[in-house]
Each structure stands twice: as C-alpha cells, then as structure tokens.
Amino acid sequence: MILGDLDERDMLKGLRALLAEQGIANAAEIAERIAATDAANPGQGAAMVARAWTDREFRALMLADGTKAAEAMGIPMRGLPPLGVLENVPGLHHLVVCTLCSCYPRAVLGYPPFWYKSAAYRAKAVRTPRALLREFGTELARDVAIRVVDSTADYRWMVLPERPAGTDGWDAARLAAIVREGDMIGVTVPSV
C-alpha cells in the first residue's frame, strides 16, 4: 500500500483514532489546541511588549521566563516549547530567524508571515542581516550591533523591542497598538 494513495480524510480519521486509543490526545484536546492555534495573533505578543514597557516587574518576569509571562497574560502555553525573550537595548538589536525550518513563537505571535519561511529570508538573515533590515525599511545606526538568533532547537524566540520616544504617558493599550509582528521578529522597530 502506498500512503499517497490513501484518502487524506481517512488518514486523518485513522490518526485521530490512534492518538485517542493510545491516550496521547483525545478529540476535545485536539479541538482545544486547534482553537488556541487559530486564535493566536501578533496582538498577544504586542500586549506582552506593552505591559513590559509599563510594568517593571512584568518586564523582569518576561525576560527571565517568557512562558510564565505569557501565561500571566492568559495565553495558553501548556505543552508548547518554552518561550525565550530577547531584549533590545541601546546599541544591541536582535533579529530572529530559523534557518533549518520555520520555528516561530506561534503561541504568542500566531502563524508566521509568509516571508519568514522563505529561503531568501533565512539565507539573508544570517549572511547580510543589516542589508536585510534595510529591505524592511529599517536603517539602524552604524553603532547599533545586530545579534541574529537562529532558532534551531527547543526554544521559540521573540524580541522585546525598545519603547520608542514620544510615547511618554501612554497606557499599555495605546502602546500595544504600535507594536507590529515584525518588531517582535526584529525586522522592524516600533515608531510613532
């Protein structure tokens, strides 16, 4: 029998039956995970960033243990890879890539943008990162060092960008609205 000849719906049905039979995951658990995956979106990561900008204690928690910080925001993390948070500071900018495949912090950012999995992005990120940032319209000062983070194993990484100037007195909701997906991958920086 050739697997490719099987009807994919039959295969899925068979796989689900096996998962349930062996006690790995039942129908309700699978439905819950599908719902959480579909609901995840960059707004969740943005809310974490905005809270880190306004709440010193949360910032410390987020940098020490991204998973706990996400859970504190009500984001389901059970059974998912640990979340690591990379802090941009004056003089140091982080850029996340997965050169091997497409590892991405889906729990907090949702599905990756289409270009994240492209061979071009993956190659340029490690070879010509400064020029890659320019393609995204991001011109870093020469004295800002770039640290590329190749996501190769068990962690998923997101960037905690620097809070932009001109946002004094803004509350977390207003700040979250200016944080984009690319800011948390590191291809762009938030601005007002």
């Binding site: 850029l95 490690v126 070879r127 010509t128 990162p129 400064r130 060092a145 770039i146 640290r147 590329v148 983070v149 190749d150 996501s151 190769t152 194993a153 068990d154 962690y155």
Partner: peptide, 18 residues
C-alpha cells in the same frame, strides 16, 4: 562572530546547540 563565517555579515549570532 558571524564575520568569521561570512566577512560581509557584520553581526554576531546566537544558536541553540546541544
């Protein structure tokens, strides 16, 4: 130091390794 791998890279690199 990415420059030691690709001279044009102008960055450093973090990789998770076992």
């Amino acid at each position: 130091d990415l420059r030691r791998i690709w001279p044009e890279a102008d960055a450093d690199l973090l990789v998770e390794l076992f």
